[in-house]
Simulated assay, not measured.
Amino acid sequence: MATTSASEQSNIDVSHFHHTPFYCEENVYLLCKKLITSGIAETEGSDLFVVFISNDKKQTPLWHQKASNRADGVVLWDYHVVCIQRRRGDHPLVWDLDSTLPFPSSLGSYVSETFCPSFQLFDDFRRLFRIVHAPVFLRSFASDRRHMRDPDGSWIKKPPPHEPIVAEDGTVHNLDEYMNIYAADANITSAKDFVFTQKHGAVIQENQLEEFFSQIS
Score class of each variant (00 low, 15 high):
3 T>E: 12
3 T>Q: 14
7 S>I: 12
11 N>H: 10
16 H>I: 13
17 F>L: 08
17 F>I: 08
18 H>M: 11
18 H>P: 08
19 H>S: 12
21 P>W: 10
22 F>D: 11
22 F>R: 10
24 C>R: 00
24 C>L: 05
27 N>K: 05
27 N>Q: 08
29 Y>A: 05
30 L>H: 12
37 T>K: 13
40 I>Q: 07
41 A>S: 15
41 A>Q: 04
47 D>T: 08
48 L>F: 06
49 F>Y: 14
52 F>P: 02
52 F>G: 02
54 S>N: 04
55 N>D: 00
56 D>M: 05
58 K>Q: 14
58 K>H: 11
60 T>I: 12
60 T>A: 09
61 P>W: 00
61 P>S: 04
63 W>L: 04
64 H>P: 08
65 Q>M: 15
68 S>H: 12
69 N>C: 12
69 N>K: 12
74 V>G: 09
74 V>P: 08
74 V>H: 09
77 W>Y: 11
79 Y>V: 07
79 Y>D: 04
83 C>W: 11
84 I>D: 04
86 R>Y: 09
86 R>L: 12
89 G>W: 13
91 H>R: 09
91 H>T: 13
92 P>H: 08
94 V>P: 01
95 W>D: 07
96 D>I: 06
96 D>H: 10
97 L>I: 14
100 T>W: 10
102 P>S: 11
106 S>H: 15
108 G>V: 03
109 S>V: 15
111 V>N: 03
111 V>K: 06
113 E>Q: 15
113 E>T: 10
115 F>Q: 03
119 F>H: 14
120 Q>H: 06
121 L>T: 00
121 L>A: 03
122 F>N: 01
123 D>T: 06
124 D>E: 12
126 R>Q: 04
136 V>S: 10
137 F>Y: 06
138 L>R: 02
141 F>V: 01
141 F>C: 02
143 S>W: 02
143 S>A: 02
144 D>W: 02
144 D>S: 11
145 R>K: 00
147 H>Q: 04
149 R>H: 10
152 D>A: 05
154 S>Q: 04
155 W>R: 00
158 K>P: 10
159 P>F: 14
163 E>D: 15
169 D>R: 09
169 D>P: 05
170 G>E: 04
173 H>E: 15
175 L>S: 03
175 L>F: 03
178 Y>A: 00
180 N>G: 03
181 I>K: 03
182 Y>P: 01
182 Y>R: 05
184 A>F: 08
185 D>C: 02
187 N>Y: 02
187 N>C: 07
188 I>D: 00
188 I>Y: 02
191 A>R: 00
194 F>R: 13
194 F>M: 12
195 V>H: 05
196 F>L: 15
196 F>N: 06
198 Q>P: 07
199 K>W: 13
199 K>G: 13
201 G>K: 05
202 A>I: 04
204 I>K: 07
207 N>Q: 09
210 E>C: 15
211 E>C: 12
212 F>N: 01
213 F>H: 01
215 Q>W: 09
216 I>D: 01
216 I>R: 01
217 S>M: 04
